[in-house]
Design a protein around this nucleic acid. Structure first.
Lengths: 269, 269
DNA sequence: CGAACCCTTGACAGAAATCAACTAAGGTGG
DNA sequence: CCACCTTAGTTGATTTCTGTCAAGGGTTCG
């Protein structure tokens, strides 16, 4: 049932709550999607699900296929990408612990994106049929899924706005500043993914990204290999013009606030 | 409370179920979002809501503002657009009868898009607080909202894929063929919106669209003003390469199927 | 050690944005 | 009713940006 391209040993024990280790269950339980849902709902999902360890570069999902499972990255990293007539673009990179392709599972519709592991990864697969049964029976779960999907939608809107409202250099600058912000405003950090993947995510070619990154030195940001150093923050910020409407809320400012909105699956890179 | 730029008379009567005429209520009730929800839920929403008649070119929503209302276009046409540092792009055009900015209302978050009327329009405003109370109390309503949001997300994913995977001419061709398909495969039809708006929606300048449209004559589609005539369907389709993963399901094929998925708010143009 | 693969750089071609001018259509006000 | 104004759309000339092709350096992995 679970296709394992590399033919490696995948732990597909018969279903049972001990299939998924407690440590993993705790991580998953902490996801906003499962917050405050009935324990029976959660346990039934865990019992029905599969826990897979996969090497890197394994295709988990092919777009167009029926959405048989909701996926949760527990360890590793997963790329969501889309293809059309030979072309391929990165849509998102999902890091632990996050769900992905929730919308397709909920709607019982074909996947719109393909997925592959970027590293050795541990993925939890929850059968979509069980997922739909669970949201139908547990209204708290339905509310969570609703909030999560609203958040996914808004993330995608921001991504689209980025593509349409910013030029190449601005997109790159904004991305780098968002990364810096995630690390508490660090001036130096390493790129979390390959540059060619970043390029595709931001809608440009690797060559274009390479040249643009170099040119950013004049705007207050030096890049050396994977290392990024923001040398003139004020100058660099004036190029990017970060805005909550395009880049999401500032995670630092957010923590100070009273009610922090649920973390959002998908679309983190 | 409701900003009315034109200073014209807006009919903000005191709340009451007779505020919203029955004819309008029936149209709204038919929306997937409200299907099978409890009558009390629906009536409480109608009682709390405002029915507005607005001239064209009125700004309904400004991005960044708190999402005080869920909007429903009952008559007319509404443009959703986004702005950043002087630039402005069209994100969607919403036509009756559809909701828009559901996600912001559900999440109690700032609007990510602005909205303005493109024609004289009738808009129903449902206070977001009432909306959230209703989804919390009516689990069927929560399920519907969840499905709707999943659909909105998928529409936005398709839009983004379009931008990233197709070049200008392909995007235009795909759009025109989708329009034709909506009209049951008509070879001739009129563009439903201004070209400059279309251009912005598809991520190009009006000049660029103008030139590209002209060049499509060589690929089987002639455009004369607002009129579109597909002269060589096979040829034109081979340029666009319509695909369910980028263009959504074929509405004709869909009707034949057993279970047609709910219609999706937003992102129709 | 060799084979991929990523990244970079240069040269070039192609696409798209910009600027400017002009036409046509629609609405306004005299 | 007509003159006027505004705005959408088109077209041409030009510049800027971006993709493509090709080659070379560096790294990783078998």
């Amino acid at each position: 049932m679970i296709i394992n391209q590399m033919g490696d040993i995948s732990n597909l024990e018969s279903e049972g709550s001990d299939t998924v280790p407690n440590r993993i269950q705790d991580d998953v339980r902490a996801l906003y999607l499962f917050r405050d849902i009935a324990e029976v709902t959660f346990q039934s999902l865990m019992r029905a699900s599969y826990d897979q360890s996969l090497p890197q570069q394994v295709t988990l999902i092919r777009e167009g296929a029926p959405a048989d499972f909701l996926h949760i990255v527990v360890e590793g990293m997963v790329e969501l990408f889309a293809t059309s007539s030979g072309r391929e673009v990165t849509m998102a990179v999902v890091r632990p612990v996050s769900t992905f392709i929730l919308a397709a599972s909920i709607r019982d519709a074909p996947y719109l994106m393909s997925a592959r592991t970027l590293q050795r990864s541990r993925i939890l697969l929850i059968p979509s049929a069980d997922l739909r049964a669970a949201v139908a029976s547990d209204s708290q779960f339905a509310m969570n899924a609703m909030q999560e999907l609203a958040g996914c939608y808004r993330s995608m809107v921001r991504h689209t706005k980025n593509l349409k409202l910013r030029n190449t250099r601005e997109r790159i600058a904004a991305y780098l500043l968002r990364q810096s912000r995630l690390l508490g405003g660090a001036a130096g950090f390493s790129l979390p993914v390959e540059k060619r993947l970043l390029a595709s995510y931001m809608g440009m070619t690797p060559e274009n990204l390479s040249r643009a990154l170099k040119s950013l030195a004049a705007d207050g940001c030096k890049i050396d290999g994977q290392r990024v150093i923001i040398t003139d923050r004020a100058r660099f910020e004036s190029l990017a013009e970060l805005s909550p409407m395009l880049d999401g809320p500032d995670p630092v400012a957010e923590q100070a606030g009273v009610s922090l909105p649920p973390p959002i699956a998908e679309l983190q890179i």
